[in-house]
Computed example of a mutant assay.
Amino acid sequence: MGDDAPLVELRELTRRLRAECPWDREQTARTIVPHTVEEAYEVADAALADDPVKLRDELGDLLFQVFFLSLLLEEQGEGDLDDVTRAVHEKLVRRHPHVFGDAEARTPGRVRERWEEIKTEREGRIGVFHDVPESLPALLLARKAQRRAAAVGYDWPDLAGPSEKVREELDELLAELARAGRPGPETEPDRAVEAELGDLLFTVVNLARFVNVDPELALRGATGRFRRRVELAERLAAEAGETWTALGLEEQERWYERAKATMGSRAADR
């Protein structure tokens, strides 16, 4: 069998599942897409964990999603996997004239600039915020909108701008919090506080973009570190004969800082 045999086999398997499996038969693009998004996040987790075995497995799951959604297109008479493949091949060639043509782009920054120029000049994209899907997670939606604005020159000239904006928005949020106070449980937030908090998050995303940090991955990493530290703090407290949930905040914080230091020393030993 040729080198493309595994792909042919997966395509045939996808068709058989669609025809013979009661669950697969009932799926539509709307019902399958949540699984596609989930698989994409699992690919991201495997990559961030630097786990090649898990990454290979999760990439397979995501690849099946591509095959399945392409089959749904075929059933609607709107194209098939071959059309999908040809379209992305043509798009990548078109958007890389510095590789497949005479254009020059010697830096990653220039490649990105040229990418946006091509989408506007040759692909008919209209408006600053063309093709920004509202379904993106909020952090990525903010970053994509900011990138679109930066592509037309609406951006800070240096790091001082976004850094100062974060401080400014934080001060505005704190002022609103001082006025409104903390709301009661299960009540709507103060509208002004909500707006200022949104502004602060937006400026933090902009700062992350400015220093080439993916805010979604950065936040996921911070959440993972927090979970691991709390879990270790709980174990350390238990080893000392203490019950984490029965401790006051000061004692919990003491164990948390000990866990943080322990994890830091372990990282240094590697």
Rank of each mutant, 00 (worst) to 15 (best):
residue 207 L to V: 09
residue 245 T to Q: 06
residue 91 K to L: 12
residue 95 R to W: 08
residue 68 F to W: 01
residue 199 D to A: 15
residue 26 E to V: 15
residue 72 L to A: 06
residue 11 R to Y: 08
residue 176 E to Q: 07
residue 122 R to F: 02
residue 137 P to A: 09
residue 97 P to L: 05
residue 94 R to M: 05
residue 236 L to C: 12
residue 249 L to E: 09
residue 186 E to A: 15
residue 108 P to W: 10
residue 249 L to V: 14
residue 25 R to H: 07
residue 155 D to C: 12
residue 84 V to S: 03
residue 99 V to E: 01
residue 257 E to R: 15
residue 192 A to Q: 00
residue 97 P to C: 05
residue 78 E to Y: 14
residue 42 E to M: 10
residue 27 Q to K: 12
residue 58 E to I: 13
residue 181 G to Q: 00
residue 19 A to M: 04
residue 129 F to Q: 02
residue 251 E to W: 05
residue 203 T to Y: 07
residue 217 L to C: 12
residue 258 R to K: 10
residue 248 G to Q: 06
residue 12 E to P: 05
residue 126 I to T: 04
residue 240 A to E: 11
residue 238 A to P: 13
residue 256 Y to F: 14
residue 68 F to N: 01
residue 22 P to F: 11
residue 166 V to G: 04
residue 100 F to I: 03
residue 249 L to Q: 10
residue 61 D to S: 13
residue 128 V to Q: 01
residue 46 A to H: 02
residue 36 T to Y: 06
residue 170 L to C: 02
residue 51 D to N: 12
residue 135 S to E: 07
residue 33 V to E: 02
residue 8 V to W: 04
residue 67 F to G: 03
residue 46 A to E: 02
residue 207 L to N: 05
residue 254 R to V: 12
residue 158 D to F: 10
residue 199 D to G: 13
residue 20 E to H: 06
residue 131 D to F: 09
residue 96 H to M: 12
residue 118 I to M: 08
residue 181 G to F: 03
residue 237 A to I: 14
residue 107 T to G: 10
residue 109 G to C: 05
residue 8 V to Y: 04
residue 187 T to A: 14
residue 119 K to E: 07
residue 66 V to K: 01
residue 203 T to K: 13
residue 14 T to C: 11
residue 73 L to Y: 08
residue 109 G to L: 06
residue 127 G to C: 02
residue 99 V to I: 12
residue 233 A to N: 05
residue 122 R to Q: 03
residue 164 E to W: 05
residue 211 V to S: 13
residue 265 S to P: 00
residue 256 Y to T: 08
residue 63 L to F: 09
residue 19 A to T: 04
residue 98 H to N: 05
residue 230 V to P: 00
residue 227 R to W: 05
residue 228 R to M: 11
residue 1 M to I: 08
residue 159 L to C: 12
residue 87 A to G: 07
residue 186 E to L: 15
residue 56 R to W: 06
residue 41 Y to F: 10
residue 193 V to Y: 00
residue 9 E to L: 15
residue 192 A to F: 01
residue 144 K to N: 07
residue 100 F to A: 06
residue 12 E to N: 14
residue 37 V to A: 07
residue 40 A to G: 08
residue 188 E to C: 14
residue 246 A to T: 06
residue 146 Q to D: 02
residue 74 E to P: 01
residue 269 D to P: 00
residue 68 F to C: 03
residue 40 A to T: 07
residue 164 E to P: 00
residue 18 R to M: 03
residue 191 R to H: 00
residue 212 N to C: 15
residue 213 V to F: 14
residue 141 L to S: 09
residue 143 R to P: 00
